[in-house]
Amino acid sequence: MATAPTLPEHILVVDDDARIRQMLSRYFEEEGYRVSLAEDGCGMREYLDKQSVDVILLDLVLPGEDGLTLARDIRSRSDVPLIMLTGRNDVVDRIVGLEVGADDYIAKPFHLREVLARVRGVLRRRQPRASSRVGNPPSEIYCFEGLRLDVARRQLLSDDAGEILLTTGEFDMLCVLVKHAGRVLQRELLMDLTRGRKLDAFDRTIDAQIARLRRKIERDPSQPALIKSVRGVGYVFSARTRQET
């Protein structure tokens, strides 16, 4: 029996600059992706109400509702990977974007190959890893403080509340912390392990991601017991973990 063809991954570009929309559309279609376009929040919502997408490229500065407002709206309904397109000097807005749930950001002006690499990165991390062995693959499930982290299925389950939805960036961050439990991890290393790039000067990407993750898994985010800060260095996952076999 013939199998159904796999559909190309679907990107939604939300930007009020027609030149940027067309440039991204042409480039990604040539790379084999399916691309849809919206020029503002109204167009974005109208499209998302009808279609599902695999990743959203969202401009920070838009007419009417800005990108931060739209990012909050997206996160209230979905954990779809979200990459913000920002001005090079919008440091504060970039941090806020990550705090409201963006998985990554790209500063304008950008190189198209960089955008492609970032999109491929979030999509690759988003997909559950296929087993390379026949039969039952080795388990990679970690249990701690009433939570169960299933790495292969990319799920975080709570004994009390069921599944806790995490963005791609949040899940990647938690996996790195849990797998290195008890070890102090520098911000630079966390950036490299979760995003595959270097930490820029004054870049608070990691801090913003940690803050959002704490709000989802800590009983009291203001007094974190699982992810602790190490002043001037980075973070350490301090909970006792048990790996299921």
Rank of each mutant, 00 (worst) to 15 (best):
M173W: 03
R118A: 02
E188S: 15
R113Y: 14
A130I: 01
E163D: 15
L149P: 01
F171N: 00
D192C: 14
M191Y: 11
H180L: 14
R197T: 15
V100R: 00
L157N: 10
L156Y: 13
S78F: 12
D104C: 01
I141Q: 07
P137N: 06
K198Q: 15
D90R: 02
L98E: 00
A130H: 05
L147D: 05
A107E: 05
V122D: 00
F144I: 05
L165A: 14
A130P: 05
G101M: 06
V184R: 14
I106S: 03
T194E: 04
D90G: 06
T86H: 10
V100E: 01
R125G: 02
N89D: 12
L193C: 15
L199E: 13
L199G: 13
E114P: 03
T168W: 03
R125K: 08
N89E: 10
T168S: 02
R154L: 01
T86E: 06
L190A: 10
V151L: 09
L189S: 12
N136I: 13
S132T: 13
L177G: 10
L165C: 14
L156N: 09
L149M: 04
I83Q: 03
N136C: 13
L156A: 06
R77K: 14
F171V: 04
V151Q: 02
R113T: 14
N89R: 11
L156G: 04
L123V: 08
R153C: 11
A181K: 14
T86C: 11
G121V: 05
R129S: 10
R126Y: 04
V80I: 09
Y142W: 07
R126N: 05
G87D: 04
R154W: 00
M84E: 03
E99P: 06
L82D: 00
I164H: 10
V178F: 09
E140G: 09
R133Q: 11
V115M: 01
E140I: 06
D172I: 08
E99Q: 12
L156T: 08
L147Q: 02
D90P: 03
A181H: 15
P109Q: 03
D90K: 04
R183T: 15
P128T: 01
L98Y: 02
H180K: 13
R118D: 04
Y142S: 02
L156S: 05
A102N: 03
D160Y: 14
L85R: 02
R183K: 12
D93Q: 11
D172R: 04
A107P: 04
L166S: 01
E188W: 10
D79A: 13
A130N: 07
L116Y: 02
Q127Y: 06
L193M: 13
L156W: 10
Y142C: 00
I141D: 10
E140Q: 11
L157Y: 13
S158F: 09
N136L: 14
V176M: 08
K198P: 15
A117E: 07
E99A: 07
A107C: 10
D172S: 12
L185Q: 12
L112Q: 01
C143E: 12
R94S: 07
G169T: 05
E114T: 07
V80Q: 06
M173C: 09
R133E: 06
D103K: 00
R113I: 12
A107S: 10
C175G: 11
L147R: 04
R124H: 11
R94I: 04
L112S: 02
Q186A: 14
L165W: 15
G97C: 04
T194H: 06
